[in-house]
Nucleic acid binder design. Structure first.
Lengths: 153, 153
DNA sequence: GATCTGGCTATAGCGACAACAAGCCAGGTG
DNA sequence: CACCTGGCTTGTTGTCGCTATAGCCAGATC
């Protein structure tokens, strides 16, 4: 990655407002990310989140509350026939925007942390394999050395 | 996301070998991700990593050692004229493969956690904006509802 | 041979997150 | 109206990652 303009001398600036750090402060723990995984897999109810992620209900409740406060999930009332009103957890747009992040982690783990190959596979509705890529508007895939970092405004 | 075949009944399988969880076990802490950020920005030396990430040298040493053991970084000897041999930390292919993950976090933070807009901007060498996308081979961008999850093999 | 410097290592303490276990509450069923 | 169930909440205890401070070591310089 090339550092452009005032960024060129790395000793003269600090990444104080870094979005990567802010994102890690918020979703930088295992349980939060696995809750997101389950949400993308279709889970909506509290007990299912806790058991499918494999954490205690105390842990799931704490993490879900943080994510609701943040705006990643929203609690929505629902009612099954003959049942009282309950709440389900649904991803907001902010939460759905984490799809590339979660799939990027999965893709990296599949490639580098699984001795026997990936256990699961993500494809599109036509069956074609899906990947997470860094790309410019014209569509070609980019590596770190093709990138330039600039100050915004 | 649609769960295909044996995955359809979510109560009948457990994500025990989940790549997302394994990835989070390894790079699921703020310091590790910020060390990766600095590596992509071009940092190679121990002291620079510690000060630019903003953690103590003890912390940086512990995290870097884990990442070297894992194969994300490698230590390489180098020698400046008139200096003794020292070591620098360089990303391996495994580490470079984390670019989409790190940029996905940045992109999400830029959009959802910055009140005044993104502080930095990533472009390609022609100046065109760069994004992290979930896409199929034919190139179009995909959302969660366009995806299908299958068992591998 | 003493000193300096970069690159760590050691120790102690704190806060976040986890597990386990138990308890609480609202509302529907019998 | 007692009981059950889903959805939490409240301890308690343990581990992990961070900070702060101090110390160590190897090799170049003086």
């Amino acid at each position: 990655m090339t550092l452009d303009g005032p960024l060129a001398d790395r000793d003269r600036w600090q990444a104080t407002r870094c979005s990567i750090g802010k994102a890690m402060d918020v979703i930088g723990n295992r349980t939060a990310v696995l809750l997101l995984r389950e949400a993308f897999y279709g889970t909506t109810r509290f007990h299912d989140f806790a058991t499918r992620v494999g954490v205690t209900e105390a842990s799931a409740a704490a993490r879900l509350r943080e994510l609701v406060d943040l705006g990643v999930f929203e609690k929505r009332p629902y009612r099954e026939p003959g049942q009282r009103t309950r709440h389900e957890y649904a991803l907001t747009e902010m939460g759905r925007d984490l799809l590339p992040t979660v799939l990027a982690l999965m893709q990296w783990g599949d490639r580098h942390l699984q001795s026997d190959g990936a256990p699961l596979r993500v494809v599109d509705t036509s069956g074609a394999p899906v990947r997470v890529q860094v790309r410019a508007d014209d569509g070609h895939d980019l590596a770190a050395e093709d990138l330039v970092l600039q100050v915004n405004r």
